[in-house]
Amino acid sequence: MPAAAAIKVMVVDDQTSMRAMIRRALQDLGFKDVRDKPSAPEALAAVKADRVHLIISDYNMPEMDGLQFLEAVRTDAVIGKTVFIMLTGSSDKEIVQKAAALGVNNYVVKPFAPAALKEKIERVFGELT
């Protein structure tokens, strides 16, 4: 079982309050190394410079949306295998299908409870300690 504390996470959402809420939820789940960025280009540069194990990204962002971000991650030779969980709205089924085709590991529909986030992360990493 992986220790949550050992997993480095990048949270990407253009809304400051949402980033803060996700960060808090992750910290409650035992994650110690949680970084965040307000845009996909900033997050992409940051994870290329300092790799993480898990990216949790909103879909709905200006400039570069979650799908474009996922594609940029997956086509990068170095960070291409980083676990990627997408946050979507309830009506975004088409987006989830596109994300699956691009290799997303899982997705979480907003609004979500911390327990749902934990469950989706554990489906990828296994039960967290």
Partner: peptide, 13 residues
């Protein structure tokens, strides 16, 4: 601890 349903009531969402 809130459910997804409860989250819909919150301003942040």
């Amino acid at each position: 601890r809130v459910s997804a349903g409860d989250m819909q009531r919150y301003g942040v969402h």
